[in-house]
Structures are given as structure tokens and as C-alpha cells.
Amino acid sequence: MHKTEHKISNKGNVLFVSFVRFVILLSALVFALAPVYWMLTISFKTEGDQFASPPLWFSFTPTLEHYYDAFVTRAFGEYLLTSAIVAVTSTVLALVIGTLAAYALARFELPFKLNRRLSLWILSTRMFPAIVTAVPLFLMMRDLQLLNTRAALIIVHTSFNLPFVVWMMRGFFADLPRDLEEAALVDGDSRLGALVRVVLPLVSPGLAATAVFCLIVSWNEFLFALVLTQTDAAMTLPVGIAGRVTQYEIKWGVMSAAASVAIVPILVFALALQKYLVRGLSMGAVKG
């Protein structure tokens, strides 16, 4: 008798807890997605509907004029291409260079405690605000005649992502048993061969997670893209979008349309790698 009551109240408790959880998650979701939703609706609204009062949340006559304006009349297609080239190239470069560096730091014993010191130096490049390097980088790129080029952005984004890649990958490598590489060496493989054939496949979830982060950082990067590029030839999407805020008017529709398109590639990429992302982010967190 007593036991049954206990069970029922237990069940009630469980229901209540999951209800509270649901409410909290829902609020978080609304909080996070409401601006995105508003942006999406603006991109499909006529300029009159955009500022209707009271606001039109759901019912309005959709239009594609802003998308046409952005990608056909204006150069947003080119910005999109620049963003893609810069993001992909700098991510690949950062992964290749950073992975090799991380492997060296994780596996080779350097003299003078350099393993630890180098790692800290590399990390320290992320300890100051990015704007500190804006002027020197601008001057360097000017002297190299790389202003208004994609190459400048690729170089800067790569250097910006490198510390992140090194630290992430170093952790993944350190967690991997040395036996496997040593076995590969004894089996006759070179260091690089062992890295490519044995080590990298085993840290691929971590590699994927790192790649997604690099891509997002580069894709969203605004400051250096603004400082180093002024012409359509090397303008990225974030800078292009912000450029529609002018002295006389703010092109909300065009900006929203371009921003909505900008979300898509990262979303697709993250969804495609979702399986790896979860494993990659928890790699090293749980031992054994």
C-alpha cells in the first residue's frame, strides 16, 4: 500500500522534472532562434511589410526581390565565393600545418622543455585581442602588396586558427597510445606513414570537430576582412553585408537575404559532420 503511493509520487516527480526540462529547453531554443527567424522573415518581406506596426510575425506576402537584388544585381554571389575560398583554404592549411605541429609537440621530446614552452607560446598568440594585430598586419600586407586579395585573408585566417588546431590536436594525439605508432614503425612504416595510415584515422572525429570550428571562425571573421579588403575582388560575406549600412539608408532586405544564405553552408557542413562532432568534442574527456 505504502509502496504503491511512493511509486505514484515518484512517477509524478519524473513527469514534473521532464516538463521543467522541456520548458527550459524550449525557452533557450526560442531565445536563440528568434533573431534568426526574424532575419529570415525580413528577407522575404517587402520593404513596407518589414516595418509594419504591429509587426507581421507570420502572415505576409513573401517576395524574392531581396535575393534577386543581392545575388543578381549586387555582387553578393562573388562575396559568397570569396568567403568559401578563404574559409576552405585557410581551414585546410591550418589543419595540415597545425596537425603536424601538434603531432611533433605531442610525440617528440624537444630539448629545453620546448614542448611545454612552445605550446604556451603558441597559445599566447590568442591571449591578446585580435585588433592589436590589425595595424601591423595591414602594414605587412600593404608591403607585400596583398591588400584586397584573398591570399591576405587566407594567410591571416590560417594564422588565427593555427593555435586552436595545435591545442585541440595535441590533446587528441596525447590520448592515443604510443604503442600503435611504434607498432607501425616496427612494421616498417615511416613516421609520416604511421601518422597518415594509423594515427589520423583514429583521431578523425577530433579532426572533423576541429575543422568545423576553423571553418566557422573563418566564415564569420569580420575584423581582418574589413581591414584588409575594400574592393569587391576580395570582400567576404560579413563585410559585404555590413557594407549595406550606408549613410542614407539601411538595406535590411538585402542584408537579411545575404545573411540567410550565409547560414546555409555552415549548417550543412555541421550537420554532415554531426556524428563526428559529438565524438570529437568528447574525445579525451572520457578516458578508457
Binding site: 604503442d179 600503435l180 607498432a183 607501425a184 616496427v186 612494421d187 612504416d189 606513414g193 584515422p201 583514429l202
Partner: peptide, 30 residues
């Protein structure tokens, strides 16, 4: 890799992402 020795590790150190055939064939593949 140039000493031409073969080693059996205490942990066996089998390559977890390869099949048994690929594991055994690894020294030959290299």
C-alpha cells in the same frame, strides 16, 4: 623502420580501425 625487426607488444597494439586481414598485411603493404 629500417632495422627489419618484428615486435609483439604487451598490449598487442592492433590497429583498431583496420580489419584483421589489414592488420596482418600492414607490414607487407608498407
Amino acid at each position: 623502420q629500417h632495422r627489419d625487426l618484428a615486435m609483439v607488444f604487451q598490449s598487442y597494439a592492433l590497429y583498431p580501425h583496420m580489419t584483421i586481414a589489414e592488420n596482418i598485411g600492414y607490414p607487407l603493404r608498407v
